[in-house]
Write a protein that binds this DNA or RNA. Structure first.
Ligand SMILES: NC(=O)c1ccc[n+]([C@@H]2O[C@H](COP(=O)([O-])OP(=O)(O)OC[C@H]3O[C@@H](n4cnc5c(N)ncnc54)[C@H](O)[C@@H]3O)[C@@H](O)[C@H]2O)c1
Ligand SMILES: NC(=O)c1ccc[n+]([C@@H]2O[C@H](COP(=O)([O-])OP(=O)(O)OC[C@H]3O[C@@H](n4cnc5c(N)ncnc54)[C@H](O)[C@@H]3O)[C@@H](O)[C@H]2O)c1
Lengths: 215, 215
DNA sequence: TCTCGCTTGTGAAAGGTAGCACAAGAAGAT
DNA sequence: ATCTTCTTGTGCTACCTTTCACAAGCGAGA
């Protein structure tokens, strides 16, 4: 199983899982690759190809057992354990994330939050106490935090991420609009709203230009 | 210029632009494809290939004029005009977005916000008045809103998006963890924090597994 | 003017990813 | 027991994206 799985495959697996969890809650027993494809925006062949990298989970002529496939995907993605998460920067985005109840359902426990702002420190935000940065190292170790969410202003993002990694974080989810430079062992994902909006603008502008040409 | 530009290329263009804006503010005059690549996490050849789809913007032996290339990219992405944006659902995420000053700098004006909650309606959030849903159609038309950001609970997301599109939106940025079904003419981008976190878990788990095998 | 050093722009090659099409297999009907 | 119907798993193919490699072009300095 040393095969390299592409990023787009992993993203799709996550989408399948999201859907399977809903189906499971609705107590549906089986699902076909076609149904799964339709509700996640891909094709049936793609679903089967993605799953085939990890084994055969379905029954021919029937489809996939919903609960069974859900569990398989959770194992593949590494979600059979719970993950402890810290938020760095408790401003608008940081607070929103701390209040997001969904994480707990999905296996993520936001157990710590850090800020430099005196007036934030000590406050309780959605059940998490905001700590000063100087407590970062001890808390990361004590709580065995492996994921850090960067929600500081862009100027502070690189340093905050570096510090989290030195303290033991193995993955970074970055909300600041900057490309973080990280050592190879550290996994990074970027969430940049502006970047997505710009992508939408391109599509809308192109669509407009395309129809203009046709006329 | 009817060539189809891939999503990943558009994403990179946006990253180049982000970097160019910073360089421009620092009053740097020229930048090479190599420098641009390093600061955006790609390769020099990739940068040149991406740009070559739209024309020749550099000088051989010198590099690219920072301001010049910035303007070119803004034109390509459709950012020479300003875009009017509405936020649907003024909860934790919706409020954070309304307070995000960066949008204005980048050509996006968040001019309207909608919510169903009586206690939210009429309130002023970061200078925008929260309106009831029934005013959506008139506001979209009067303000010529073309982008809708969906920040409602997941159950309401599809309906909210449909309504925005019927009212004139041509692009949707979706924060709810669900695949929206939209007619082909509408551009959609999804921002799902949980999905990104799960992707990180996969990478961390795999990295762990890989080193285990080596030992 | 000629040469040298540097960087772009791009055709060709390599490397991946997605889609097609069908044999294999499972369940239920006859 | 056989036939029918359905859906999986997968080899093959087509397409698309990235990388490579180098000629072309630009400016500086002799
Ligand atoms: N607000 C949004 O909707 C939004 C959207 C997309 C991206 N972002 C990005 O997310 C980041 C945070 O945005 P925001 O709007 O929440 O900003 P904010 O100013 O509301 O919050 C930032 C918080 O980080 C704290 N901080 C500053 N330096 C720190 C450090 N070194 N360590 C820890 N905390 C530190 C500040 O005290 C503040 O509380 C920014 O990079 C921004 O670009 C925000
Ligand atoms: N909070 C986060 O950090 C976070 C992170 C990622 C994704 N999300 C997603 O973003 C969405 C919003 O999350 P939130 O935490 O801000 O939730 P929230 O409950 O704080 O806010 C949701 C708001 O939407 C309003 N609303 C409900 N139905 C509506 C409708 N039909 N039209 C307009 N408004 C309506 C509610 O009154 C409420 O004010 C959810 O889908 C959530 O899954 C949230």
């Amino acid at each position: 199983m040393a095969r390299k799985i592409s990023d787009s495959t992993v993203r799709r697996l996550s989408r399948y899982l999201r859907r399977l969890r809903t189906l499971d809650r609705q107590e549906l027993k089986v699902v076909s690759s076609r149904e799964l494809a339709e509700s996640t925006g891909t094709t049936a062949a793609q679903v089967r190809k993605d799953l085939s990298h990890f084994g055969s989970f379905g029954k021919r002529g029937q489809g996939y057992g919903v609960t069974d496939l859900r569990v398989q995907l959770e194992e593949i993605l590494g979600l059979t354990r719970r993950w402890r998460v810290a938020v760095l920067g408790v401003g608008r985005i940081g607070s929103a994330l701390l209040g997001y109840g969904f994480f707990t359902q999905r296996g993520f426990d936001v157990v710590a939050a850090f800020d430099t702002d005196r007036s934030m420190i000590g406050r309780d935000v959605a059940g998490v106490r905001v700590q000063p940065l100087k407590e970062l190292e001890t808390t990361f170790e004590e709580q065995e935090i492996s994921i850090a969410i960067i929600a500081t202003p862009v100027e502070a993002a690189q340093k905050a991420a570096d510090r989290a990694v030195r303290a033991g974080a193995r993955a970074i989810l970055n909300f600041a609009p900057i490309k973080l430079r990280m050592s190879p062992g550290v996994a990074v994902r970027e969430m940049d709203v502006t970047l997505e909006l710009e992508g939408l603008c391109y599509l809308v502008t192109e669509a407009g230009a395309a129809t203009d040409v046709k006329e």
